[in-house]
Amino acid sequence: MQLEYFQMIDKINSYDPVERKLAASSKVPQESPIFEGHFPGHPLMPGVLLIETMAQTSGYLVLATTGFEQMPFLAGVKEGKLRTFVAPETPLEMEAVMVHDGSGFAITKASIKSEGKKICDAQLTFKTLPWQTEDFSAMMKKQALEMGMKAEFVPS
């Protein structure tokens, strides 16, 4: 996890195409420039980055579910609950479940736990748009594979 580069997922652990569910994990870094401001002497992972982490987990779920045909962009956050503080070096287990695969949009429910304790959850809406360039699509596929998504779910 590199907060300043918005790399929120270390590993995609599983994707279930029947249940339309994806699990991923990360570890909050010990140090980051973000902690210098949030907050000086009291480092905490910003809530907006927890939402981003759920969004990226959901994003890979949408990509896998739709065969990487379109790119999902976060468009809405509903019932977002940030339940506890998250300190550096906290291990995170993310899960995203597809609620609705619509035409041009998708809705997921996502959550993050740490050692079994619920940290946050939300319902997320994504607009799904055609790839602007082939490079973009190729880069997202490459990242998914590097994070551990099985090749059978990543069309070449």
Partner: peptide, 25 residues
């Protein structure tokens, strides 16, 4: 457009359909 997504989601759910919003647009 964002409210419309919420509405289409609710309509899809209510009637068990998938409104082809992309092709309409």
């Amino acid at each position: 457009s964002l409210d419309f997504l919420d509405i289409v989601f609710a309509i899809d759910k209510e009637f068990g359909i998938k409104i082809p919003l992309e092709s309409w647009t």
